[in-house]
Design a protein around this nucleic acid. Structure first.
Lengths: 210, 210
DNA sequence: CCTTTTATGTACTGATCGGTATATATTTCA
DNA sequence: TGAAATATATACCGATCAGTACATAAAAGG
């Protein structure tokens, strides 16, 4: 997102001395993201990661640091490319429109045909083998920040009058993200697209109309 | 709970030959459940399990089989003692009452003060390190069976007239379990009890009234 | 050509994983 | 007083974990 660091390649600051790298760090990171997305942080082994990325372990460590740093970079990529629907959803004209875009965006992202099922954030926040505690905390913090943005948007909606005065923006945002996280769990559990679409429709049917 | 198989001790069929066991299998299993509940199936190591159970590895393997069998027995215990609120909730007189009891039951179970936070089922269904694929399938299957029971209850409610004809029982049940699973994710992510109570209240406020 | 610099491939490290062999301790049955 | 049966404790198994040492390969600067 920030123009100063557009890609991961920036981790190699020097212009072009020494033997050139034989792989594209951005594509390698994209492949690593898929592995983390399927297996979670701890479930993804370095062997599986290196194989998917098409590189050997020393190359991985030289370019990305270690497993945790690699995961954080993958998480950045995930938020940048897969969670962008959240930002655009907040631009919808009404609170209900925001909810609709968030739900359909979550559905498209977590139940697509090319990407793994479920939400990397949910997978990483729930999984928890002691070692991954810092990762867990990081994911939870990022999620909280995005929920705050939804709260702010709903507060604006209330001020603008398209959300009833009787509805607490914070409670509504919390409820909405709960449904979204539940959707991710169901998607990761093999629920079909039609089933998830019905859930989205039901949620919107229940939505507190202005 | 059931009189035919009241405890895990039944796995030792013989009456009392040889050296007597020095630990209580039921309590050991309860302690193992807590570890699985915190760490997930793969995140729980045999070392952590044996330490929590207060026994050595050979005793564990002799009594419970292996890690996967131990997990299944722990899952049985979990459903029997922690998910019993689902069965009782289905006895509520109205569909809305069922939803209310399910939501408050989920809240009490996954956000208690003595037990680990979150839902063992959600944790196990989401976590996924290749090896645990059969465990994952088992957990998902059990969850599906309990969702079918809710669908049946809502169909009854529609037949009895306390649920609008315009509401699809299957969609409503699917929506409700989505919220419950989302609640588990939030509970496992450290959400406070008050926050979860607000979510439950919001869900019930949105509930399609008869 | 040679040095410097960076990347790669192979082979390795110690730690931990789930699971077990073996020897010993404690009980019941004969 | 054995002999059979069951449980325990210690120490180990091969496999895998994340991470690295080291030698070699390929580029740029001198």
């Amino acid at each position: 997102m920030s123009p100063s660091s557009p890609s991961v390649t920036a981790c190699a600051a020097s212009p072009s001395r020494g033997r050139p790298r034989e792989f594209d760090p951005d594509e390698a990171l994209a492949r690593a993201l898929r592995v983390f997305w399927q297996r979670g942080y701890e479930g993804a082994s370095m062997a599986e990661l290196t194989e998917a990325m098409g590189i050997a372990k020393p190359s991985l460590y030289a370019c990305f640091g270690n497993k945790e740093a690699l995961f954080r970079k993958a998480l950045d990529l995930y938020e940048r490319e897969k969670l962008c629907y959240v930002k655009t959803a907040l631009d919808a004209p009404t609170a209900r429109g925001v909810a609709e875009k968030l739900l359909t965006g979550a559905l498209a992202t977590h139940c697509g045909e090319t990407d793994p099922q479920g939400c990397l954030g949910v997978i990483s926040a729930v999984t928890c083998g002691a070692e991954a505690e810092t990762i867990r905390a990081e994911v939870i913090a990022r999620r909280a920040s995005s929920e705050r943005a939804i709260v702010a948007r709903f507060e604006r909606a209330r001020d603008e009058g398209d959300l009833s005065e009787h509805v607490d923006p914070e409670a509504l945002a919390s409820y909405l993200t709960t449904v979204m996280q539940g959707l991710s769990v169901k998607a990761g559990s093999g629920a079909g697209r039609e089933a998830l679409e019905r859930i989205v429709a039901t949620t919107l049917a229940c939505w507190p109309s202005a």
